[in-house]
Design a protein around this nucleic acid. Structure first.
Lengths: 193, 193
DNA sequence: TCAAATTTTTGACATATGTCCTCTTAATTG
DNA sequence: CAATTAAGAGGACATATGTCAAAAATTTGA
């Protein structure tokens, strides 16, 4: 019998009883979005934090020249939102859409705050989860600081090999901060090594 | 009468009584480090999370070619540590040193965990603080994705004008991910605009 | 205050990456 | 299945950034 993916993630940090997990789940809403569906438009307020059960989401930002940059991919077991808009209730600068049909559990800020008040364990979980995400972001910054495009590409190849199978290389390029042409040429120089 | 800087930061998120703040402070140790002193060596375990009262710290990483990259500056009211080493008790890949004589309050992981168990408000503070730091890191990543060196430089100029006064430009260059020569040339192209 | 050390600037050139374009192939959809 | 769209590769050239060496400016310390 397989554990619910959300429960599995929570229990990597704090153990829950069946009743507690049922209680947790009551704060979420299950939703299914279609491929290409936009779940957060730039300028809107991010109402939800999404836990991805199945599928693939993408968080993007348009720059001043109209170019799109990918800040994050959200695969199974990832959490996806615009943190600034969600927590500070401001207009979002980001867009979130689905690259595949995507099933999520959505959590409003209200329900998140209710949940952490009612169940102390969830506050511990959220703190540790946020700390772990912080570590991941720091590593991504270090990757920008100390690696060229080729190294960043190989880095993501080894960190998320499955992602490369699921999204076009032009999106990987956007995530890495290079053009698709540059990425296309890197695949060669890699072979030389 | 001026509020203790740590208390001020905490109370931007949760209110504390005098007794509560005294209790919080008991979990910290005050330390003063000399200019150039290294407070975390690469390979060591990060024993402390530092809250900077006065002075300036720097978090760096050596890449595979021996080049140094600056991940973070920690001025007054900043928190500085290697999160991965501190929370996962692993050997640090980072080095932390002081660019000025620096006075800090240091917090061991043990004391942090004691504190959040004993005082629920501190858990809320730490969660919100971590969320805010997360937002800052995401913005830095977006800055790498969508801006060239010139724009990144002007970005930090407007975000942290005081930092520019306190550290050599070569360190700003390292923080921005460019060479000092490139940064030096940018200061010109800026004037053209 | 002066000499030494550090930091910044500059030049000449090399390399990495971006831009615009075309062509081919693969994927999607009606 | 056919028609359309999207993705990937590649050429030719432009621009941004890095490298190395040296000079100029600034800071530091005796």
């Amino acid at each position: 019998m397989s554990l619910h993916p959300l429960r599995k993630q929570i229990e990597e940090i704090v153990k829950l009883t069946d009743d507690e997990f049922t209680f947790v789940l009551e704060h979420f809403h299950k939703k299914v979005y279609k491929k290409h569906q936009i779940v957060l438009h730039e300028g809107d307020y991010a109402q939800f934090d999404f836990f991805v059960i199945k599928g693939l989401m993408r968080v993007t930002r348009l720059d001043s020249e109209g170019k799109e940059h990918i800040l994050q991919f959200g695969m199974e077991n990832s959490w996806v939102t615009d943190g600034e808009s969600y927590h500070h209730k401001t207009a979002s600068l980001l867009t979130i859409d689905c690259l595949e049909e995507t099933e999520v559990l959505s959590l409003t800020l209200e329900n998140k705050e209710k949940l952490i008040k009612e169940l102390q364990k969830m506050q511990i979980f959220l703190l540790k989860k946020t700390i772990n995400e912080h570590i991941v972001l720091q590593k991504r910054i270090l990757c920008f600081l100390s690696n060229n495009a080729n190294d960043r590409y190989h880095n993501i190849l080894s960190l998320s090999p499955s992602l490369i199978q699921r999204v076009p290389k032009s999106m990987i390029a956007s995530y890495l901060g290079v053009t698709r042409e540059t990425l296309s040429r890197l695949s060669k120089s890699k072979l030389k090594m």
